[in-house]
Amino acid sequence: MNKKWLWFVAIFVLALMVAGCGGTAEPTAVPTDIPAPEVAPTDAPAPADTAGERPRLLLATTTSTENSGLLAEILPAFSQEYNVDVDVVAVGTGQALQLGVDGNADVLLVHARAQEDAFMANGDGSRREDVMYNDFIIVGPPSDPAGLQGMTSATEAFTKIAETQSPFVSRGDDSGTHSKEKAIWAAAGIEPAGDWYISAGQGMGAVLTMADEQQAYTLSDRATYLALTLEGTELVILVEGDPILFNPYGVIAVNPDKGAHIHADLANQFIDWLISVPTQELIGNFGVAEFGSSLFIPDSNAWRESQGMEPHSN
């Protein structure tokens, strides 16, 4: 066997893989006067530099906004209007805020009011605005062994679950939802423990599936629950509408003092756009066609004003 032939094949296979997406390969965001490092010495045609240097806004957000499909629905309008690419990094609320602290993101869309306020107080952000809220619901099996149907208070419902020792699946992962659950237990003055309290350590979808299988109760955000109803879950909504169950989202511009790489102007444009009435309308309409109800309720000051409501007090 000819050795040269062998090397040719091996290099060809690799070159093919590297060139696999010549078309989508994009130049890194580097100053244009410095030549970008060659990725690999191949004879493949160089990636077409068609995109030019469109600015990129890095948005760190929680998984709920991306997994629900909200951002995919509304962001193209912003990209088009302002000629900006928005890179969405969907992580937990804690990591999203940390990305801001470290100056790795330009703008944050998160739901953890206390932590957001601390973020602002530390000078990590230059501006914060209310955007929208979604709400949590208490779901359970249709047989409803704890008899929650018709209750309006989340804390009373949790007390009932604990008293009857009905199985309850907790996220147990320190997520925003888990924090909310712990807050409700604390408000009810209960330290949940025992065979009936199942700490899953998993995401919302997995926890809902688990609750469905085990005929257990759980606390869920409405968007994930509604998405799962399309997959045929038996769980039903038992308690909703209690103010403690509201989950407000805020948008924060990262302080430009963190470095010249922070796109402060773009971040401000993005915030102005996000809280404007037309965008708020887009948010309110999202999901209505599919689920029959809004997944996120618009709640910016501009929106509240347009609806004749009082602006936020803060």
């Binding site: 093919l16 997406c21 078309g23 989508t24």
Partner: peptide, 20 residues
């Protein structure tokens, strides 16, 4: 398809680098 192409590009380049 974009996802497939990127997977190939990232892993292919990384393989080339680590081979060298």
């Amino acid at each position: 398809m974009e996802v497939v192409a990127l997977s190939l590009r990232v892993s292919g380049t990384a393989l080339l680098v680590s081979t060298v």
